[in-house]
């Protein structure tokens, strides 16, 4: 029963069925739940679909072009980074670059020049993700870094908010590009009328591409939470903190808008369900994730009420990203039964 060394054990057995059969050897567990990184990422994309549909409804063509441009930019940057690092291109299909591109697009003004969006996409992947070592290694949320880059480079363009095409105007607004103040901008400027809560909830207000309709965000976001793709902890931590913060501020000074306004305005909902739940930049510990959400919610409200910017989700996320390693260190759970006694 001498076998040629080049023949693998399996082949040899196939040829000689009477010989002792040999089997694969591996370490337990021998079953897997079947979820994969790709599966998670594409579920996030699925969760983003309602937002995209709402954006298409409100902003028409812009909502088609912008996400495609950013996703393309992210994929190209990922491919180039892979090539420069001498790695295979498998990471293109894991869906993470697509998610980054979509999140970025949905956080941009609808009327943004596509070349700027492209730059934002490239920066997101190249500067925020690839140079840290790719998937899972980045300290900061790539999409938020890309957006911050655009805010610095193109401050004017990043402050133009197109009026959404709403039911009432379908007939008379053939050309888009009518600008208006965002609700949060309106809240800072006493001369502008504040939209009704219902308009805020549905999204008939100015704002970033994917964030204006709290309803669409809720549909997509709750889908992710129920699928256990998004953790409920940062979502609840962020929204509850923002709500309480806004309620107290409103009680002390009624000139501040109420808590419901703040929950539905700007990227609060979008940030809670889709950005604060980003795995990589948030702590891995259960308590840490609640703290992360609380931190984001508190910072958003602080920036909104007292800062120079009308919106603060981006800065809040980036600041909390920076604090993540510290939070994680503070919140290491005590094992069931206590820590291992210091022995040997």
């Amino acid at each position: 029963m001498s076998e040629a060394p080049t023949v693998t054990q399996e082949n040899a057995n196939a040829e000689q069925p009477q010989g002792p059969r040999s089997f694969l050897v591996s370490s337990a567990p021998h079953l897997a739940s079947g979820t994969s990184t790709r599966c998670i990422m594409f579920q996030v994309v699925l969760g983003l679909v309602p937002l995209w549909l709402a954006a298409l409804y409100f902003y028409r063509l812009d909502a088609l072009i912008l996400p495609l441009v950013t996703v393309a930019a992210c994929l190209i940057a990922e491919a180039v980074a892979n090539a420069m690092r001498g790695r295979d291109q498998r990471s293109l299909t894991d869906g993470s670059a697509i998610v980054t591109g979509l999140i970025l697009a949905f956080s941009l003004p609808p009327d943004l020049n596509p070349y700027m969006a492209f730059i934002g996409g490239v920066v997101s992947i190249a500067l925020a993700k690839a140079i840290f070592g790719g998937l899972g290694q980045n300290l900061f949320n790539p999409a938020m870094v890309g957006r911050a880059f655009l805010m610095i480079c193109f401050p004017a363009a990043m402050g133009i908010w197109t009026e959404p095409v709403t039911l009432a105007r379908i007939g008379d607004t053939a050309v888009d590009g009518v600008t208006m103040a965002t609700p949060l901008g309106a809240a800072m400027d006493p001369s502008v009328l504040i939209p009704s809560l219902w308009d805020l909830f549905c999204g008939r207000v100015g704002g970033s591409l994917g964030e204006t309709s709290a309803l669409a965000v809720l549909i997509g976001g709750l889908f992710l939470v129920f699928r256990r793709v998004a953790d409920w902890r940062p979502v609840l931590g962020m929204l509850a903190t923002a709500f309480v913060y806004a309620a107290i501020a409103h009680r002390i000074n009624p000139e501040f808008e109420g808590p419901m306004f703040h929950l539905f305005a700007g990227s609060m909902m979008f940030g809670a369900f889709f950005i604060a739940t980003d795995y990589v930049g948030a702590p891995i510990t259960p308590v840490g994730r609640i703290l992360f959400g609380i931190g984001v919610g508190g910072l958003v409200m602080t920036i909104r009420l007292f800062g120079a910017y009308p919106e603060g989700v981006m800065f809040a996320i980036l600041i909390m990203n920076a604090l993540t390693p510290l939070i994680e260190r503070w919140t290491v759970p005590t094992p069931f039964g206590g820590h291992v006694a210091a022995a040997g």
């Binding site: 979820t35 891995i284 759970p333």
Partner: peptide
Amino acid sequence: DQVVRRQETACIRCGRCVDHCPLKLM
């Protein structure tokens, strides 16, 4: 087909292992 032979990829810090560890480890 059942044998789990998977490519090890980067940890995405999803926290599933932390959430499912019956001994509350990381």
